[in-house]
Nucleic acid binder design. Structure first.
Ligand SMILES: [Mn+2]
Ligand SMILES: [Mn+2]
Ligand SMILES: [Mn+2]
Ligand SMILES: [Mn+2]
Lengths: 221, 221
DNA sequence: ATATAAAGTTAGATATCACTAACAAAATTA
DNA sequence: TAATTTTGTTAGTGATATCTAACTTTATAT
């Protein structure tokens, strides 16, 4: 049995993994808000359970089993968020904390029912891909809005690390997933962007905000 | 903050409370499947938090705060069961274990949404009353089927301590909440009942089963 | 190359929640 | 009333998950 605490570590490792699938103890510690010695000892115990590969002073890597477990929890989290938004009338800024708890419920049936009721969604309300039952994730062709050039027209398709403060800010600008944007201007001095979308012709967004927004090219018919 | 573990103790105390609101440590221990010394020490710690009144060798009583907390958890449990059955297509024999976990989710909004979606139900799928937000429970006028006399016609309105085995057994007999029953015969020897309902004229039910079924008088128009 | 900073570990403490073994009180039976 | 059973407590142990303080290793900067 994997405890709720362990599940949160596995999920974090999955999310933080770099290109090599590695995560430093310090990074993990900061992300979870748990002190490094606690993380170190948890890594030892996860290694004993064959969920991570861990050598002292080296970054941590999820095993195949660990990766599968992590993906399963992320799947539950994202299905829950989608269900709360689509079927229960929550806003996208209200669901993360609830999903953080519901993701630990031991019941495949519950999440299968959500999946079915939602007609097997591929993305959560923040545009993050939902892993399938085998833990496979279908990453869409996204880049950051901050990487787009002046004149480009793209579609908002995701938000990174969606804090409710940021999501409420997007609400106030009427920015939603699916919104089609054109980059009108990039301020050379501080990277501030001027964007047009809907009826808005010159909405201003800081570079920091643009780094948290994911976009895709428009789909042609 | 009340932990998940503590919540389960409070809920049990609420359910087991006798006429005086008391529960013995032994009874609690058996109900929760936790050894008595553990229960004793938990009672001390709940008393420190002012959730129970506890004097050594005396039965335990919930304080007003404790009772309120317990009712709130029971409310969450029963709303969840109702939501799973009514909105997600689960059977009444499949929801208890899931609700046992979901009841601990810290989010008033989640349960308020369920309540609203269900149009503020008064009973759960097993006929148990759902406490209101203030913890008040509206007990219906129920008695056990085993207490009914030959010739009485009543309506099935609840099941006691609903294990999935028992519920599946009721499914197999096509017994549901709302079913109208007539007691045709009570076997003097062992208390076995012969019942008629729907198109069935002589369905046999053991006394043990009848003790687990709650009925009410038919409502007149 | 050395000093400093950052990252990571070890050791030891604490809280929570469980257990067994041994004992004590209360209730029941003889 | 005395013996026995049931109920309940105390004491001591262990697992899990957290922390702080002190130390070590690795990486970075001078
Ligand atoms: Mn989330
Ligand atoms: Mn979580
Ligand atoms: Mn239940
Ligand atoms: Mn529970």
């Amino acid at each position: 049995m994997i405890s709720q605490t362990e599940e949160n570590y596995l999920k974090a490792l999955f999310i933080l993994a770099n290109e090599n699938g590695e995560t430093g103890v310090n990074e993990l510690s900061k992300f979870l808000g748990i002190k490094m010695p606690t993380v170190t000892s948890m890594m030892k115990s996860l290694a004993d359970k064959n969920l991570v590969r861990y050598i002292t002073y080296k970054p941590v890597i999820l095993t195949v089993t660990g990766k599968k477990e992590a993906a399963s929890i992320i799947r539950k989290h994202r299905l829950t968020e989608m269900y709360l938004v689509e079927k229960m009338g929550f806003g996208w800024d209200e669901v993360h904390e609830i999903a953080e708890q519901v993701e630990h419920v031991k019941s495949n049936a519950l999440f299968d029912k959500m999946d079915e009721a939602l007609d097997f969604p591929k993305f959560d309300p923040h545009g993050a891909p939902i892993p399938d039952k085998n833990g496979k994730i279908d990453f869409p062709d996204q880049r950051k809005l901050s990487e787009c050039k002046v004149g480009e027209t793209i579609q908002l398709s995701g938000v990174i690390h969606s804090s409710d403060v940021f999501l409420k800010f997007l609400n106030s600008k009427n920015l939603k997933l699916g919104t089609i944007l054109t980059v009108q201007l990039i301020e050379a001095f501080d990277g501030t962007r001027e964007l047009s979308y809907d009826e808005r012709t010159a909405e201003i967004l800081s570079e920091i905000a643009c780094e948290k927004l994911l976009v895709q090219n428009l789909k042609h018919i």
